[in-house]
Structures are given as structure tokens and as C-alpha cells.
């Protein structure tokens, strides 16, 4: 790990830092002493076998694990220098700054327009109807969906195709002007074309946002991310530049996993 940090390319400053993070589900430890920085305006991929803790770790970043009673998170997780587990932190506001996109697209059973307008409305981000519409259109454009739905904003969000629904969810996350977008297997239910569209979108989004993606697809991690973290049994085994991880990983476990070997 230390060697890896030395040889890594100069990184952008970390917008999010996690230090010595442990997560327990009751007595079961899901995350074991993980320390990881998330550089700003880059895409960080978290990979590892099922049950390795990568999704659990992702959910620490916007306190999604708070919704699970038996889940206990300890360690130091900071967003722009601020401890996000400080009791004074407004979790709803935090989740607006750190949005999330899930494995299965989950649009509200509302119109496309209302899906995107939902966040700005509850966070009072628009002072007028025109301003709200402006946010909706801007968000749909940034999510690469606007051209496909411009003439049917009143149609139900659930009437869209799977890939479009996922981009609608991205637009919904973008609408509240987040800095970080967490993506948990965003393309696992999509066909290759819809996947490629999302990946292309992620590439363009990273100029404005920081993205952390959990993916089961090695190829996707290799294609979209600049940094990759490999998790195994709750531990962060290796973390570094994606091109390094996929050409010459330092750790044998990483090597075995990414090359599809019996470890």
C-alpha cells in the first residue's frame, strides 16, 4: 500500500476522506479499518467479490447505513474537512451534497418533471416556477436525457426504458447540486448500449462532480475510473491508479480477483 501511494500519479485534493473506518452489523464486522481518500473531480471505483463490504463502505459516505438499526459505523469520515458523523450534521442536507444512484433505477411514480423537481422543491432551491423548470432542464441535460424526453416531461418516469430511468435518477441526484455522486452498481441491470451511455455520461460529469462507483464489472471499473480500490472480506486490500491496478497490481489477492483466478 505505501509503495503504491509513492508511485501514484499526483492526485487532486481529496474531497472525502475515510480514516480507520469500521462497520459492524450487530456482531458481524463488515468493514475492517479502512482508510481511503476520494480525490475531487475523479471517478473512484470500488471493486471486490460479493459480500466484501464495498457497498457498505460506499453507504458510509452519505450515512445511508444510519437507516439500518443494527449497523454501527466508527472511524473518521470527512467531507470537505467536516466530520459527517458529527451529531450536529443535518443528514438530509448531507445527502443533498452527496447524492446516490442505486443498482435498480427507482424513479418516483410521478412525471419525469416532478421526479427531477422533487429535490429542489424540498430543499427550496428555486424561488419561482421558471427557476425550477430551469433546474429540471439543466439537470436532465447534464444527465444526457433531455433530448430524449423534452417533449414528454409530463409522462410518468416509470414509462421510460431501464437506461433512461437510471439517467432520470442521475438527473434527480444532480438537481440538488451535489458535489459527490455515489453509484452502487448503476449499470448492472442495463444492456451494453445503455451502459455505454451512462459511462460516457460519467466521464463528462466528472468535470463537475466527484463520483464513487461500486461495480461488479472489472471492465467497467477499468473503463471509467481513475482510482480503484479493491476490497476483500471487509478490508481495503489495495488502492491506487486504475491503470496500475489493471496492469500490475501489487497484491496477489487483487491480481487473482481481477484476472479471474482461483484465489
Amino acid at each position: 500500500m505505501e509503495k503504491q501511494i509513492e508511485t501514484a500519479k499526483p492526485v487532486k485534493p481529496a474531497i472525502m476522506t475515510a480514516k480507520n473506518v469500521d462497520v459492524f452489523y450487530g456482531k458481524n464486522q463488515a468493514i475492517d479499518n479502512v482508510t481511503l481518500d476520494i480525490p475531487e473531480n475523479q471517478i473512484t471505483a470500488l471493486i471486490g467479490p460479493s459480500g466484501c463490504g464495498k457497498s457498505t463502505f460506499l453507504r458510509c459516505f452519505n450515512r445511508m447505513n444510519d437507516t439500518i438499526d443494527i449497523c454501527k459505523v466508527s472511524g473518521d469520515i470527512r467531507f470537505a474537512g467536516q466530520d459527517i458523523y458529527d451529531p450536529k450534521v443535518d443528514v438530509v442536507a448531507l445527502r443533498a451534497r452527496i447524492g446516490m444512484v442505486f443498482q435498480k433505477a427507482n424513479p418516483f411514480p410521478k412525471s419525469i418533471y416532478d421526479n427531477v423537481a422533487y429535490g429542489p422543491r424540498i430543499h427550496d432551491l428555486a424561488e419561482s416556477k421558471d427557476e425550477l423548470t430551469e433546474i429540471v432542464i439543466k439537470s436532465l441535460k447534464r444527465a444526457g436525457l433531455y433530448d430524449e424526453v423534452a417533449d414528454r416531461l409530463d409522462d410518468s418516469g416509470t414509462s421510460l426504458s431501464g437506461g433512461q430511468q437510471q439517467r432520470l435518477c442521475i438527473a434527480r441526484a444532480i438537481a440538488v447540486d451535489p458535489q459527490i455522486i455515489l453509484m452502487d452498481e448503476p449499470c448492472s441491470a442495463l444492456d451494453p448500449i445503455a451502459t455505454a451511455i451512462i459511462e460516457e455520461l460519467m466521464e463528462s460529469m466528472k468535470e463537475r462532480y466527484t463520483i464513487v462507483i461500486v461495480t461488479h464489472s472489472m471492465a467497467q471499473a477499468a473503463r471509467v475510473s481513475q482510482k480503484t480500490g479493491f476490497f476483500h472480506l471487509g478490508k481495503l486490500i489495495e488502492h491506487g491508479d486504475t491503470d496500475k491496478i489493471f496492469t500490475n497490481p501489487d497484491n496477489e489477492l487483487t491480481q487473482n480477483y481481477i484476472s479471474g483466478r482461483i484465489g
Binding site: 472489472m218 489493471f246 496492469t247 500490475n248 487483487t254 491480481q255 481481477i258 484476472s259
Partner: peptide, 9 residues
């Protein structure tokens, strides 16, 4: 096969 790491090399 889309080889990576040692396989790719």
C-alpha cells in the same frame, strides 16, 4: 478474454 494484469502483460 479481456486479460488484465499478468495475463495482459
Amino acid at each position: 478474454r479481456q486479460p488484465v494484469a499478468m495475463d495482459l502483460r
